[in-house]
């Protein structure tokens, strides 16, 4: 079945951050359950464009290939998504593949998402434990809190929520929905709540939650179905209370 069927892929290439961008088109042999990663691997094995020109394999990030490591986010047919779960049969051809546009480009499809990890530092996205030595059990947590917190802790830092956010661009340093959602997660935990006010203060800093303009694209683009807009609302509620009423004591 499908003998001789081809998959046409167009990839935006850029040899480095300051190099010019160009498009290359490839024609690949179709196979069942093919995804975009397989396309990129096929190109690496035979890096020749559709019109027969030799080229280099495409640089891209990938690791787990089951949508849980967050590496392979890119723009596929103009939309931010994970390449591993982008199945060729569900995509219009030619499949256009581009790097994410909101992060500094490294090469081809690889971008540098360090900004997200730095933001996590800024908001103290951790539970401040005393140490790893034996201090007994953790606090009890109700199943209700667990069921709210677990989806939030599924965030894979892929960056899709930043990519689709109209508020994230060269004019702003908005941290994005993922980070705000982490603030909610850690403030929800009994131990994490001890540093709640520090996290809230940080998320009201430059590029903080105030830059959200409620376009709500993030929640549509999140591959892990995290209720990001609920997180933003919840953090917003705590934030203004602290900022505006905090001094009242």
């Amino acid at each position: 079945m499908g003998d001789g069927k081809q998959v046409i892929v167009k990839v935006k290439r850029q040899a480095g951050p300051k190099q010019p961008a160009r498009w290359e088109e490839f024609s690949l042999k179709w196979r069942p359950s093919m995804n975009v990663i397989i396309c990129l691997r096929d190109i690496a094995e035979s890096p020749v464009t559709r019109d027969g020109k030799k080229t280099t394999p495409i640089t891209y990030d990938s690791n787990c290939l089951e949508e849980i490591c967050g590496s392979c986010a890119m723009l596929i047919n103009g939309k931010a998504r994970m390449a591993c779960s982008a199945l060729v049969d569900q995509l219009d051809q030619p499949i256009r593949i581009e790097p994410m546009s909101k992060f500094p480009l490294v090469r081809d499809l690889a971008v540098d998402r360090q900004f997200m990890f730095e933001s996590l530092k800024r908001v103290k996205a951790w539970i401040p434990i005393d140490g790893t030595y034996d201090l007994g059990e953790g606090p009890r947590v109700s199943p209700e809190i667990q069921e709210q917190g677990y989806p939030l802790s599924n965030c894979i830092s892929c960056g899709n929520c930043l990519e689709v956010c109209p508020q994230v661009n060269e004019h702003s340093q908005f941290v994005g929905a993922a980070i705000i959602s982490q603030v909610r997660l850690f403030n929800m935990h009994p131990t994490g709540a001890m540093n709640k006010s520090e996290r809230l203060a940080a998320i009201m800093g430059p590029g903080g939650i105030q830059d959200c303009a409620n376009a709500q694209n993030c929640v549509h683009a999140c591959p892990k179905n995290i209720p990001l807009t609920e997180s933003i609302a919840a953090v917003n509620r705590d934030a203004w209370k602290q900022a505006l009423l905090g001094w009242l004591g």
């Binding site: 103009g78 939309k79 689709v164 109209p166 508020q167 661009n169 004019h171 702003s172 303009a213 409620n214 376009a215 709500q216 694209n217 549509h220 683009a221």
Partner: peptide, 18 residues
């Protein structure tokens, strides 16, 4: 001025409203 609309790429209702 600081926002950058992308409704053509992501034509979701919230984005239109934005």
């Amino acid at each position: 001025w600081r926002g950058k609309s992308n409704v053509s790429a992501y034509p979701w209702v919230g984005n239109w409203l934005y």
